[in-house]
Design a protein around this nucleic acid. Structure first.
Lengths: 329, 329
DNA sequence: TCAAGATGCTAATTCGAATTATTACAGGGT
DNA sequence: ACCCTGTAATAATTCGAATTAGCATCTTGA
C-alpha cells in the first residue's frame, strides 16, 4: 500500500519548503507573495513527474466547508417499486448538486430502533454535511424544531408549517393549482363539487383542501369533502365534478363510473391533484395538475446554497402545471 | 451563520479538556485510559444536548474510518430513463450500507471538461469516503490503475481485467450462465448456434462471448458470432438458436421472426443474456438469464468492508439465475 | 510514614495543506 | 558604513480530532 505523497515530500524533492509548494500549487501571486519563475518551474516539474494531487481532506479541514450536501429521506432513496414518486425530486437534487460542484451524502446510516429512519438518533450524523435537504410527505415536527434550534442549515422539500419558527422550504403551490382546476370546471358549468382525500395530516394535503374550499367559496358553488371514495355517495349528492388527492383514487373512480355505465367526463368529471404515493393505472388519462418535482429538487438545493451563504430562511412555492387529460368536460 | 461545534466547545461546556471529550466520544478504555463515570456522563450529556458530531474531515485527516462509503458512477445515479438498469444495484448498495451503519456519498461533483464524470480530476474528492464502490458498464483503465497505485480502497461492480494489478470486484458469472443456456439448448437438440452482440469492449461482453465459445466447443456444435442482428443472415446460416447480449435485441429478433411467419421457439429459439442497457418491450417473454443486480450491490458493499478491514482484494462472481420464458424449444 | 500502585485527567503532538508573519539577502542611494 | 526597498523564500500557525506521555491526586500495604 504505497503511501500518498504529501507536499512535504514534494518540497524535499524540489529543495524548497512545504509552504512554497502550496503557494506554487495554488498559483498565488497576490499579497506580497512572490516565487521566482525557475523555482516555480522546478516545483511544477516534480509535481508533474510524481502525479501529486493535494489531499482534499486536509484542504477542506482548513477551508471550513466540505462541499457535501446531505439528503435525508425517511425511506430508502433507491426504492424497489418502479415509477417512484420521489425519484424526480432526487434527479433535480443531483442535477443541481452537480452544477454546484457538491457531493451528496445519503443518510443511510440513520435508522432508529423502530426501523424507520430518524434525523436525530443516538449518533446523528446530520452535521457531516454542510447542509441538508429533507424529503418526505410529512416530516417529524420535533425533528424540524430541533433542526431550527440547533441552527443546522436545511431546506425542506414541500411546504411546512412553523415548527417553533419558520421552516425553510421549496414547495408546490397546491392552493393555486386546485383553485385553477375549480375555475376551469366552473367555467364549464359545474356547480356541485366534491373533494376526495384526507385533506389534513400532511401540509400538502391540507393545502389542497384549503385551495378547494377557497375556490368553491369564491364561486359560490357547492363543495363537499369526503375522506374516502364512494361513488354512490357522490352521485346521490348530485356531484358532477370530483377532485381526488390521490391519482390512484381518481383512476379508480373513473373505472368504477364507467363500469356503472356512466360516461366520464360526460356524466362525471374527475380531476386529480398530483399526489401519487401509490402506483396508479396508466390507462386512465386523468385531467388535473402535475407537481414540478424535478424543479423542486433543483430549487431546494439552490435554496440550501442561499441558506449556507446568507443564513436566510427561503420559502418558495412553485406553480403546478395543468395536465389536460380527458376527464374534465 | 451558526458555527459548527468543536470538541473544544464541548470541552468548555463540560468543564474538561478537549482530549477528554475525544476519549469519551470514542469510548476508549484501553491502554491506561480511564475516565470517571460521572465525568463521562457529564460529557455525554453535553454531546447529547448539543447534538455534536465529530467533524468527519478532521477525523479522517487523522485516522481512517468515517463510515462514509463512496459511490462512483459515470452517469447520474438518479436517471430519468424508466426501467433503469442500474437501479437494482443501487438498491442493494443502499440496503447493505444501511445494515453496516454507513452513509453513502455520491460523487456528483466529479465532472470533467468533457462532461463525463472522471474519478480523478483536478480536485479529486474520492478520498472523502473511506472506500468506494464503482458502477458502470466499463471503467476507465487508467482510473482503475490510479486507484490501485494510490491504494484507495474500492470494489468494482462487475468483473474487471487487471489494470496494473488485480482489481477487486463483485461480478456476475456470465461464462457459466451462458454455458448453462447452451447446455439446455443442446439438450433440446439444437446444434447450430449464433451469438449476437459486441462480445468485446466491456468485460461483461467479452465474458459472455467466452462462455459461448467454450460451450459450443465442449459440445462440438457449431457457433457463429455476429455483432449485429440480421435475421436473414442467421437463417441463411441455418442457425436454430440465437443468444443475444442485449435483451432488446432478443425481443426485436423474436418480433421480426414472427412477422416473417416463423414460429418462436418452433423454428427459432432466442435466448437473452441479461444485459439491458436499453429499454426493451415487455410483451416478449424471453428465455435466458437474469443478473442478480441487487445482490451484487449488497455483496459489493460487504466486499468493500472486507477491503477496509483486512486490505484484501476480493474477487467474486455471483451466479445468474435462469429465466424460463417461452422462447426456447 | 513513605514508597508503590491506581486512578483521572490534561498538555502536547500529529495528520496535510493553506496562510500570515517574518527572515534573508540583494542592490541602490547617501 | 548605513539605511532603505524589493525580492524570494521559509517558519510558524491554523483547522478539528486522535493519541501518547505524563502529571497530579488518592489508596494501600509494610
Amino acid at each position: 500500500m504505497a503511501k500518498r505523497l504529501t507536499q512535504q515530500d514534494i518540497a524535499r524533492m524540489a529543495g524548497v519548503s512545504q509552504a512554497t509548494v502550496s503557494l506554487v500549487l495554488n498559483n498565488r501571486q497576490d499579497g506580497g507573495v512572490r516565487i521566482a519563475p525557475e523555482t516555480r518551474a522546478r516545483v511544477l516539474e516534480v509535481i508533474r513527474k510524481t502525479g501529486y494531487v493535494a489531499n482534499p481532506i486536509a484542504r477542506r479541514l482548513h477551508d471550513q466547508r466540505n462541499r457535501i450536501l446531505g439528503v435525508f429521506t425517511y425511506e430508502a432513496v433507491f426504492p424497489s417499486t418502479r415509477a417512484d414518486f420521489y425519484q424526480p425530486f432526487l434527479e433535480g437534487i443531483e442535477e443541481q448538486a452537480e452544477d454546484a460542484g457538491c457531493d451528496l451524502l445519503l443518510f443511510t446510516s440513520a435508522k432508529a430502533a423502530g426501523g424507520r429512519r430518524r434525523i436525530f438518533s443516538d449518533d446523528s450524523r446530520i452535521r457531516l454535511a454542510d447542509g441538508c435537504v429533507l424529503l418526505g410527505r410529512s416530516l417529524d415536527r420535533s425533528d424540524l424544531a430541533q433542526l431550527l434550534t440547533e441552527g443546522i442549515p436545511f431546506v425542506s422539500i414541500g411546504r411546512r408549517d412553523d415548527a417553533g419558527g419558520p421552516v425553510p422550504y421549496v414547495g408546490a403551490d397546491y392552493p393555486a393549482a386546485v383553485r385553477d382546476l375549480v375555475d376551469r370546471a366552473v367555467a364549464l358549468g359545474h356547480h356541485k363539487f366534491a373533494y376526495v382525500g384526507a385533506g389534513k395530516g400532511a401540509e400538502s394535503s391540507a393545502d389542497r383542501l384549503r385551495g378547494f374550499r377557497e375556490a368553491v367559496a369564491a364561486h359560490g358553488v357547492d363543495g363537499i369533502h369526503v375522506p374516502f371514495t364512494g361513488l354512490d355517495q357522490l352521485l346521490d349528492a348530485g356531484v358532477t365534478a370530483v377532485l381526488t388527492e390521490e391519482v390512484s383514487d381518481g383512476a379508480a373512480l373513473v373505472l368504477a363510473a364507467r363500469e356503472r355505465g356512466l360516461s366520464v367526463p360526460g356524466d362525471l368529471s374527475v380531476l386529480m391533484l398530483g399526489a401519487a404515493t401509490r402506483p396508479a393505472p396508466d390507462d386512465v388519462d386523468l385531467t388535473g395538475f402535475g407537481i414540478p418535482r424535478r424543479e423542486m429538487g433543483r430549487r431546494a438545493v439552490q435554496a440550501l446554497t442561499e441558506v449556507l451563504e446568507n443564513g436566510t430562511t427561503p420559502q418558495e412555492l412553485l406553480a403546478c402545471e395543468f395536465v389536460a387529460g380527458s376527464t374534465l368536460g
